[in-house]
Design a protein around this nucleic acid. Structure first.
Length: 426
RNA sequence: GGAGAAGUGGCCGAGUUGGCCGAAGGCGCACGCCUGCUAAGCGUGUAUACGGUGUAGAGCCGUAUCGAGGGUUCAAAUCCCUCCUUCUCCGCCA
């Protein structure tokens, strides 16, 4: 959520932001609501002030045994009127809040202006795209042939966009997860967390999934308003909702390995084969709570931490900056890391690292107490995949394939593979 | 799943014949004084949000907030309803 004061004082900044994001949201709508709200507050509070002034007078008369009928009559009318205006005020406030909650974050000045992913500049390219002396195959083809992936039985169990992994493949995914966690906790100072995979509406609203993107989520039919997490960013970031952190404690760095659940509504026809786009996948997520003065350093730091995984696995990748038109709702700046997939002959997203500045912190009410200052400030929150485990499995399979259809296990994963060094066709 | 108890300011804890309660007291914290020695004492201050004004995150005025939401009433921390959370006992269970 944006700062209400900023909306009121400098609506042009918001207009400009929305223009860069190609949004149709109209700031004038907000300004009108805000005017109306202020007018109502003035009226309602004047009436309540009257009530507070006359109330003790009534009590005084009653105690003295005097008649207070005239005041009671008058106050009855005041109370009635106050109630009417209060109801209208509540409506206006709710509408205004909803409007505020649907406005995306303001892009950082360094973010390139653009319309679509075509306009995302490449920041750096790391590792050489491997040259194969045969036609590299796609992961789903290799995985199925080697008995590791089974999409047909998954369809039977659940439906499209699910997968069952067996044997070496299940082990490889577990190895990747463990390797990532060990790297982030051991090398980069992250604290490992196991959060709930089901969260409530408040939590989903704190990070920005709600109210705008409910159709992307799996909602439980339970009357308790439960949702399956689409990413561990949601529970990790909300861990400190409604809390005040010590300034010296910043930055706080959490990581978690969790399943992620996404409805993938509106992605019909995209990536219909393989593991790239599933309703359920695993991800190691990193979340930082940073001091506002250092959050952009933290973004670089987090991105490097994600890249480290690919470097250790010797997987070629590149880093791009998302342009204003391609950036997510809550982000002020986002780097995507794209890994090379020989089977697809292109780079595909495997991590997304964002600085949300105080956008989520304001929604979730996460603050810190600056030393010497009176007022508490919102922290900056960052999140990034470190990495998407399912897509990393895809990358390993495709990059480490050999002409005979076998797959070599990357050096860095061998300690986790229980002796498996090569997966070969039977 | 059954039975019961509780939710007040950073913490503890008063307040339940509705009005004099934004809320006693204590602790903690901040500043000052005193004293001077591994202490203590004294004084003052100590929430947040919104609205108005404005020297525009100074001050002042107003409103709201005693788990959340709704109701009764001229008036509710105090009465009624719903929900949430925590705790205790029993049952069940990975």
């Amino acid at each position: 959520m944006l700062d209400l004061k900023l909306m009121q004082r400098d609506p042009d900044v918001v207009r400009e932001s929305l223009r860069k994001r190609n949004s149709k949201i109209d700031v004038a709508e907000f300004l009108a609501m805000d005017e109306r709200r202020k007018a109502l507050i003035a009226d309602v509070e004047a009436l309540k002030a009257t009530q507070n002034r006359v109330g003790p007078e009534i009590a005084k008369r009653k105690r003295a045994g005097e008649d207070a009928e005239d005041l009671l009559e008058e106050m009855k009318r005041v109370a009635e009127r106050a109630k009417e205006l209060d109801a209208e005020l509540s409506q206006v406030e709710a509408a205004e809040k909803e409007w505020m909650m649907s406005v995306p974050n303001i892009p950082h000045a360094s973010v390139p202006v653009g319309v679509s992913e075509e306009d995302n500049p490449v920041v750096r390219v790391v590792g050489d795209v491997p040259a194969f002396d045969f036609q590299p195959r796609e992961h789903w083809e290799l995985g199925v042939a080697l008995g590791g992936l089974d999409f047909e039985r998954a369809a039977k169990l659940a439906g499209a966009r699910f997968c069952v992994s067996f044997g070496w493949c299940a082990r490889l995914e577990r190895a990747l997860a463990q390797f990532m966690l060990d790297t982030q906790t051991g090398l980069h100072g992250y604290t490992e967390v196991i959060p709930p995979y089901i969260v409530n509406r408040r939590t989903m609203t704190g990070t920005g999934q709600l109210p705008k993107f409910e159709e992307d989520l799996f909602k439980l039919t339970d009357e308790r308003d439960f949702f399956l997490i689409p990413t561990a960013e949601v529970p990790l970031t909300n861990i400190y909702a409604d809390e005040v952190l010590d300034e010296e404690a910043l930055p706080v760095k959490f990581c978690a390995f969790t399943p992620c659940f996404r409805s993938e509504a509106g992605s019909y026809g995209k990536d219909t084969k393989g593991l790239i786009r599933q309703h359920q996948f695993h991800k190691v997520e990193m979340v930082n709570f940073a001091h506002p003065d250092h959050s952009y350093e933290a973004l670089e730091d987090m991105t490097r931490s994600a890249e480290r995984i690919l470097q250790l696995l010797k997987l070629p990748y590149r880093v791009i900056t998302l342009c204003t038109g391609d950036m997510g709702f809550g982000a002020a700046k986002t780097y995507d890391i794209e890994v090379w997939l020989p089977g697809q002959d292109k780079y595909r997203e495997i991590s997304s690292c964002s600085n949300c500045e105080d956008f989520q912190a304001r929604r979730a009410n996460i603050r810190f107490q600056p030393k010497g200052a009176k007022k508490k400030e919102y922290v900056h929150t960052l999140n990034g995949s470190g990495l998407a485990v399912g897509r990393c499995l895809v990358a390993v399979i495709e990059n480490y394939q050999r002409a005979d259809g076998s797959i070599v296990i990357p050096e860095a994963l061998k300690p986790y593979m229980g002796g498996i060094e090569v997966v070969e066709p039977k």
